Computed example of a mutant assay.
Amino acid sequence: MDAHQEEFANPFGMDAACENCPGLCTEREQVVHGYGDVGAEFLVVGERPTATADRHGVPFVGPDGERVQSVFAELGFVRSPPDTTEPDVQNVFFTNLTRCRHPEREPTDEEVATCEPFLNAEIRMINPQILVPVGERVLRALAVEYTTRRPDSFDIDAEHATTIRGRGFELVPMCDPASMRDEDAAAFTEHMRENVLSRDYRQTKGRQSR
Score class of each variant (00 low, 15 high):
residue 34 G to W: 00
residue 25 C to L: 12
residue 27 E to N: 15
residue 119 L to K: 00
residue 85 T to C: 09
residue 109 D to N: 11
residue 41 E to K: 09
residue 79 R to Q: 10
residue 39 G to P: 04
residue 50 T to F: 00
residue 28 R to D: 10
residue 88 D to Q: 15
residue 108 T to V: 07
residue 84 T to M: 07
residue 114 T to G: 00
residue 32 V to I: 09
residue 23 G to F: 01
residue 105 R to D: 04
residue 70 S to W: 05
residue 81 P to T: 08
residue 92 V to C: 06
residue 54 D to G: 13
residue 81 P to W: 03
residue 79 R to L: 13
residue 79 R to C: 12
residue 22 P to Q: 08
residue 39 G to A: 11
residue 33 H to M: 01
residue 25 C to G: 14
residue 62 G to R: 03
residue 75 L to D: 14
residue 63 P to Y: 01
residue 96 N to M: 03
residue 35 Y to N: 08
residue 29 E to M: 12
residue 33 H to A: 15
residue 28 R to V: 07
residue 84 T to W: 10
residue 90 Q to N: 05
residue 37 D to C: 09
residue 47 E to N: 13
residue 96 N to L: 08
residue 58 V to R: 01
residue 105 R to F: 04
residue 73 A to F: 02
residue 30 Q to Y: 12
residue 74 E to P: 05
residue 61 V to K: 03
residue 84 T to C: 06
residue 71 V to D: 08
residue 36 G to E: 00
residue 90 Q to F: 05
residue 66 E to D: 12
residue 92 V to S: 09
residue 30 Q to L: 10
residue 60 F to C: 13
residue 92 V to G: 12
residue 23 G to K: 05
residue 109 D to L: 06
residue 69 Q to Y: 04
residue 98 T to Y: 00
residue 27 E to K: 14
residue 70 S to G: 10
residue 92 V to I: 15
residue 49 P to V: 04
residue 66 E to L: 04
residue 99 R to F: 01
residue 103 P to K: 03
residue 67 R to M: 04
residue 58 V to H: 02
residue 114 T to R: 12
residue 120 N to Y: 01
residue 34 G to T: 06
residue 42 F to T: 10
residue 44 V to G: 08
residue 68 V to S: 07
residue 102 H to Y: 03
residue 37 D to N: 13
residue 80 S to F: 07
residue 26 T to A: 15
residue 68 V to Q: 11
residue 109 D to F: 02
residue 105 R to H: 14
residue 75 L to M: 14
residue 66 E to C: 12
residue 79 R to V: 02
residue 89 V to D: 05
residue 83 D to S: 14
residue 63 P to C: 02
residue 57 G to S: 03
residue 115 C to V: 04
residue 70 S to P: 07
residue 107 P to A: 09
residue 41 E to W: 09
residue 31 V to M: 10
residue 110 E to M: 13
residue 116 E to A: 15
residue 106 E to D: 10
residue 109 D to W: 01
residue 35 Y to I: 00
residue 29 E to Y: 11
residue 40 A to P: 05
residue 82 P to Y: 02
residue 63 P to D: 03
residue 51 A to R: 13
residue 108 T to W: 07
residue 74 E to W: 08
residue 26 T to L: 11
residue 45 V to P: 13
residue 95 T to H: 02
residue 114 T to K: 13
residue 24 L to I: 09
residue 104 E to I: 07
residue 77 F to S: 00
residue 66 E to S: 15
residue 57 G to K: 04
residue 86 E to P: 00
residue 114 T to P: 08
residue 45 V to T: 03
residue 28 R to S: 12
residue 39 G to T: 03
residue 23 G to T: 12
residue 54 D to L: 09
residue 81 P to I: 00
residue 95 T to L: 01
residue 102 H to W: 05
residue 48 R to N: 11
residue 74 E to Q: 10
residue 38 V to A: 07
residue 79 R to E: 10
residue 72 F to C: 01
residue 63 P to F: 01
residue 89 V to Y: 09
residue 32 V to P: 03
residue 112 V to H: 00
residue 66 E to T: 11
residue 113 A to V: 13
residue 43 L to G: 06
residue 90 Q to Y: 03
residue 22 P to G: 05
residue 59 P to L: 06
residue 67 R to S: 10
residue 114 T to M: 06
residue 87 P to D: 06
residue 71 V to F: 02
residue 26 T to H: 12
